[in-house]
């Protein structure tokens, strides 16, 4: 029973990991920007939701605020920080440092505005219901899995069936090709940031009701996103999705064998092993060199 329970818990965690990780993977895969502040996007979306919802403005305005906050942050960051850096120097490491700095600023600003304590959105939906004897599932778990399916389905449609989506996929391989099709690579990059940032919103909102929030939560989100992107294979959205789910499951099922302080180590041992043995990731084609 415990194993089934942990698998379900892991699936819920994994679904949310998949969403945030795919957002990072999409941005990284298409623009090669090491967007470490992706965790900050998560924090902004979550706290905007918490702030507006807590003010009693209702569910839909709160979701809208979270979405707008996330997209605005992602797109502005690309325009104001990443674009100038890429213009004079392409090193991904320079971008990484700048992005890391932004993450620190956001974490502390959020702490000053909303307080550094633990906050949570109260809803009966986070209360688990006994499905079969000994196995409890909360309504939010179903919502999480459903949201993940809808958002990732829509993303696949966007990437495969729309011009912008296809251009986005082509951007990483050949920016010149994008230009010859009459599209502006910078516009496509902005699209990648907008879409990638929107993907964290459902995960951020659900987290605000399940585990609750504090300003430092973005750090963990980012590390998991990075791990899932690499384990899944850079440039492979489906691979990242799969890896996100697997990492969530592994983290939860690991409790059968080890104490909870080792679960993060399990995730990163998997990451380390993949880089040594199979750097291309689960579904990746790209080579590491």
């Amino acid at each position: 029973m415990l194993a089934i329970q942990l698998a379900i818990t892991g699936l819920q965690t994994g679904a949310l990991y998949a969403l945030t990780a795919v957002g990072f993977s999409l941005i990284f895969g298409s623009t090669r920007i090491f967007h470490f502040a992706h965790g900050a996007t998560f924090v902004i979306a979550a706290y905007f939701f918490y702030g507006v919802f807590g003010a009693g403005l209702g569910l839909l305005p709160s979701i809208a605020a979270a979405g707008l906050g996330a997209v605005a942050f992602g797109v502005l960051l690309d325009r104001l920080v990443y674009a100038p850096i890429q213009r004079h120097e392409g090193s991904f490491f320079t971008v990484f440092v700048a992005s890391f700095g932004v993450g620190i600023v956001v974490q502390n600003l959020i702490g000053m505005v909303f307080g550094r304590g633990f906050v949570t959105v109260n809803t009966p939906l986070s209360r688990s219901v006994e499905m079969i004897p000994g196995v409890y599932v909360s309504p939010l778990a179903w919502i999480a899995i459903l949201c993940t399916a809808i958002f990732l389905g829509a993303l696949q449609f966007f990437l495969r069936r729309t011009h912008t989506g296809m251009a986005l996929r082509a951007l990483a391989d050949n920016p010149e090709l994008v230009r010859t099709f009459g599209l502006n690579p910078r516009m496509i990059a902005a699209t990648a940031f907008a879409v990638g940032s929107v993907l964290v919103v459902p995960a951020a909102i659900i987290t605000s009701a399940t585990t609750g929030l504090n300003p430092a939560i973005g750090h963990h989100v980012m590390l998991i996103s990075l791990a899932a992107t690499i384990v899944g294979g850079i440039g492979s959205v489906s691979g990242t999705m799969l890896a996100g789910l697997l990492l969530g499951l592994a983290e939860s099922l690991a409790l059968l064998v080890v104490d909870s302080q080792w679960t993060e180590a399990v995730t990163f041992a998997i990451l380390f092993a993949f880089i040594i043995i199979r750097p291309a990731g689960l579904l990746g084609r790209a080579t590491a060199h």
Binding site: F34, F92, F96, I234, L271, I275, P279, A288, H289
Partner: peptide
């Protein structure tokens, strides 16, 4: 590996 892969490995 090089580049971002190595960064990720060292992070791990």
């Amino acid at each position: 590996v090089r580049g971002e892969y190595f960064v990720a490995a060292s992070l791990g």
